[in-house]
Amino acid sequence: MMDFALAFVVGGLMCMLAQLALDLTEMNPAMLMVVFVSLGAVASGLGLYAPLVEIAGAGASIPLPAFGHALVEGIGQDVDQYGPLGILSGGLRATAVGLTVAILSGYLMAIVFTPKG
């Protein structure tokens, strides 16, 4: 049960932080998604994000900063395995599942559903 509670609270807090930025700055949601994904990558580089995922599970791996974190982590793994070229291969390899599902479902939904407005 503890993992659920932590996922809810940490994930919720992260969204609250983003909401705070939305309400107090001039930034729009699309812009904030870019900011948070970048922040995730930076936090990952500083070694901060992996422990958070350890503790909060989905609470840290479902919000968008996890996408930046996954890219950085993938780069790290590929650099260890293949050397410097890993910088160019690791990021998208580590996030391939998510991106592919996103593209496929985008295509699928556009065929199956019509926008309701």
């Binding site: 939305l22 949601p29 699309a30 926008p115 309701k116 407005g117």
Partner: peptide, 16 residues
């Protein structure tokens, strides 16, 4: 909806 997609976001994009 024609204005929304031209001036703002796609209509199904969630935003406050």
């Amino acid at each position: 909806d024609t204005a929304e997609r031209q001036y703002r976001y796609p209509t199904e994009f969630g935003h406050q």
